[in-house]
Design a binder for these strands. Sequence first.
DNA 1: AAGTTAATAT
DNA 2: CATATTAACT
Length: 351
Amino acid sequence: MGEEVQMSDCEKDVRGGDEERMLEWEVGLPNTDDLTPLSHYLISPELASAFSISPEPCKSMVDVNRASENALSSLRLQAQAFSLNKSLPSFKKIDDPLIVEEEEEDDPGRITKDGSDARKIRRLDITEEEDSALRMENSNEDYSSPALKRSRLVWTPQLHKRFIDVVGHLGIKNAVPKTIMQLMNVEGLTRENVASHLQKYRLYLKRMQGFEVPSSSDHLFASAPEPQSLQESSGTGNVNGTGTGTGTGTGTGNGNGNGNGNGNGNGNGNGNGNGQMQLPMPYAASFMPMQVMGMAHGHSHMGMAVGNPAAVAYHGYESHPYSMFKEQQGDWSGNKFGLAVSHPHVTPNDI
DNA sequence: AAGTTAATAT
DNA sequence: CATATTAACT
């Protein structure tokens, strides 16, 4: 509506043409001359080919807008979560025709249908939407028409982890579907998806609270962790190294151990005992958007974490998303024994 | 509209 | 049977 900032305006703001127009948060940012042109390749073609790096085309304004949007979105929520919200600048699109809502990014969450329509790797034109090519690889199935029903979402370990992270971050008290969904920042994830998963998670928590192993030191969050804005918990390692680029990295690490099975633990892969979560603060910001799409389908369970059709074909592991290594589905939901067996749990391999 | 909970569906 | 979706209710 009232937000139509053109490139010219932006540049002006950034380079200080209009000092007064420059918002405080913009001070210190490099101006357009200092930045690498979007059209510039970061590595030479030779190098790229040498390492089999797909010659992904340069980024376009679409990417910039998208990134900005995501970043701000996360920051807002984060700020909100910590109630130190200081009105962040509102995101403004820098013009560009097609701004699709689709994202691409790292990990996939859904799988394709029974493998039928699987891949369509048409790398035609590829103007500014080239990343769509990448998208095509993981996300299959772009339900765009209201007619298409989304295929059953598969809560892969990655997705679940993110879910747990967010819930832990918010505190079970403030963890409601919409907020969780937003903080998770996963592309195709709907509020309903989250609500459903949350329902299960709560049940799990409830039934788990009877016998959580005394886990030594920290309080398991099981029942009702103190909500209030902050609850950072111990320092223990922190996972996400943030940083865009590869994001993910790290994870794992920390000793964890703490022998107890500690309930919920599963959440954040690596123990670090307390359920609550790590990420004291710079949390949400470190998340990279995820993409989920695709589906599970089929009968038997073989939800794969990979979103890539091909991967599905290989069905790398095959078995429940969460169990990965372990038997049955003892995960948080199942486990009729009630015992919380410490799971190596989800591969800390991060996304 | 959004959150829960219960009922279905896969 | 477990998990995910959809309906129902608040």
